[in-house]
Write a protein that binds this DNA or RNA. Structure first.
Lengths: 160, 160
DNA sequence: GAATCTCCGACCAAAATCATCGGACTAAAT
DNA sequence: ATTTAGTCCGATGATTTTGGTCGGAGATTC
């Protein structure tokens, strides 16, 4: 439960990739094309294309349709792209319940004679939203340890 | 996105209801039946039945199959039922990604040549999990304002 | 024994999601 | 100018999840 959709995963992976790939390059933002990202991560190209289109439509990345040298590049600094923005671009406004939006007019929520759990649920939702908004693509650029380096496995003084 | 399923909503509503209804009653826990909850909240009975069965199977509530006086009652103190427990009971182990579990063997996640966003994603997931585990059914028992009391709508001194 | 309830499993329908395909347009390279 | 490699957009099909339904078995009270 509470799982990201694959599209969301793909979006995050792509943005992370685009961020790392253009590190240190100031001008001429490094443009990467769909196929490159897809092959790098084993993602069906056509689906990824749609994800990237969506991100572009939401200004998170810029499309450079320049023929053979075309592709995408980040539209802003990595730290200015929050995870909440990415998720909302991909999956629409996020909320735990249907009545999260239109807080007053709960047209749908009338189902329940009187819903007594709105307030606490909104608080939870707010917390999660803040969390997702406090993290950016920059925070995804951590060194990914190649898996399972159990702490204090190597005795001291014996470098590799 | 990140929406609860309706079953989860129903579960929370039911637990909240069962908690309020038995307030002040020490012994003989007030047993409520499925239909009562369903009618109270306009929920299809059969679906709610399944939700309650699931909760019972996970020990969150107790089933009293006593014929006409049968029904369900909370299995523990409201404060000992965390939202995380409820959600996991209803929707299975929660995690943002498919590879959330089996952290080492990422059999599925091999899709991505190398997934560089595991670590930060796990952190987010951990935060959300803590949040959901820090709140219990007791926290749902707040006074719910009857909706739309727009601030300072009524001029002072002119009651109703 | 009849009524009322839980319990369980199987089942169907609708909706969301994943994935694919085809066609239009653009700009660089030759 | 033609080719080529790319984006862009919409439509469509397949798969999965979810919401919702049904029928029968077992227990208990009246």
């Amino acid at each position: 439960m509470l799982k990201f959709s694959k599209r969301a995963d793909y979006a995050l992976l792509s943005l992370q990739y685009m961020a790392t790939v253009q590190i240190g390059i100031e001008a001429h933002p490094r443009v990467v094309n769909t196929k490159e990202i897809a092959e790098e991560h084993n993602i069906p190209v056509e689906l990824l294309a749609k994800v990237l289109q969506t991100l572009a439509r939401h200004q998170l990345i810029e499309s450079h349709h320049n023929g053979p040298k075309g592709g995408y590049a980040l539209g802003r600094e990595p730290k200015d792209i929050t995870l909440a923005q990415v998720l909302e671009a991909i999956e629409g406004p996020l909320g735990l319940t249907d009545c999260s939006h239109e807080k007053d007019d709960h047209s749908q929520c009338e189902q329940m004679n009187h819903c007594n759990i709105r307030t606490p649920l909104f608080k939870i939702q707010e917390s999660i939203f803040q969390l997702l908004n406090s993290m950016s693509i920059e925070d995804l650029l951590v060194e990914e340890t190649p898996l399972i380096i159990v702490e204090s496995l190597k005795p001291q003084g014996v470098p590799s």
